[in-house]
Design a binder for these strands. Structure first.
Lengths: 113, 113
DNA sequence: GCGCGTTGCTACAGATATTGTAGCGTCATG
DNA sequence: CATGACGCTACAATATCTGTAGCAACGCGC
């Protein structure tokens, strides 16, 4: 299979007009709940409702929109019986995101938060 | 003096109620243009207008809002004469973000984008 | 086969956030 | 003084998100 058609069908991602993948990625991740969803799935699949609970009861409307976008991007997939889980590509992204956790700890120590 | 001068004064960051720094960070970064701004500053300071140009002409309203949030978070600072630049903490975050660039390349090869 | 609970997902109105255009006051340079 | 760049703001038009309610489909116990 040279190329998969299902992913990235319409309007793809804002910022992708520059042709630089990083811009498209930053735009995709810079939408509400997107980073959080990927984060909550880091340890394994969650059903859409468990995911909603984990994400501070985000409204099902955006949640569903984000899940569709992330599926189109090939980062997550719907596993019948298990809910949503990261794809191989998604797990790859998760690895790239892990340094953030360590940074967050350092950050919280300096912002009197 | 319209409002908000001190750092992190009201409700700081959505999601910080959990007390887990990573949630506050993911929420902060999950706002439009935030990731992009940090990314564009990765190689050095930019004036607010150069930043706007780099960020695909984002409206000055959000740009200014994001810059204030990022300043309150201690990630960027206004350097008189040089515009906005990353703080030591911001550069730390930048390092945590670099893996995303490499991932974006792999990602773009699989999504026919 | 009939409730019952859960799944993924959608409608819709009200609340927020973002965009786009215009413009302010300040400072430096000519 | 004029010009231009700076950081920053006002404000109306959009786009996006929230919150509540509810759908059809599936499995399970009975």
């Amino acid at each position: 299979m040279p190329k998969q058609a299902p992913a990235m069908k319409k309007r793809a991602v804002r910022g992708s007009r520059t042709g630089r993948p990083i811009m498209a990625l930053l735009d995709l991740l810079g939408r509400r709940w997107t980073l959080r969803i990927l984060w909550e799935l880091r340890e394994g699949p969650l059903t859409s409702r468990a995911l909603r609970t984990a994400c501070d009861e985000a409204s099902p409307t955006v949640m569903q929109t984000r899940l569709t976008e992330l599926r189109d991007a090939g980062l997550i997939e719907l596993l019948p019986g298990d809910g949503y889980g990261l794809t191989a590509l998604g797990r790859d992204l998760k690895e790239s995101l892990l340094p953030l956790h360590r940074f967050a700890e350092r950050w919280s120590k300096q912002t009197t938060n």
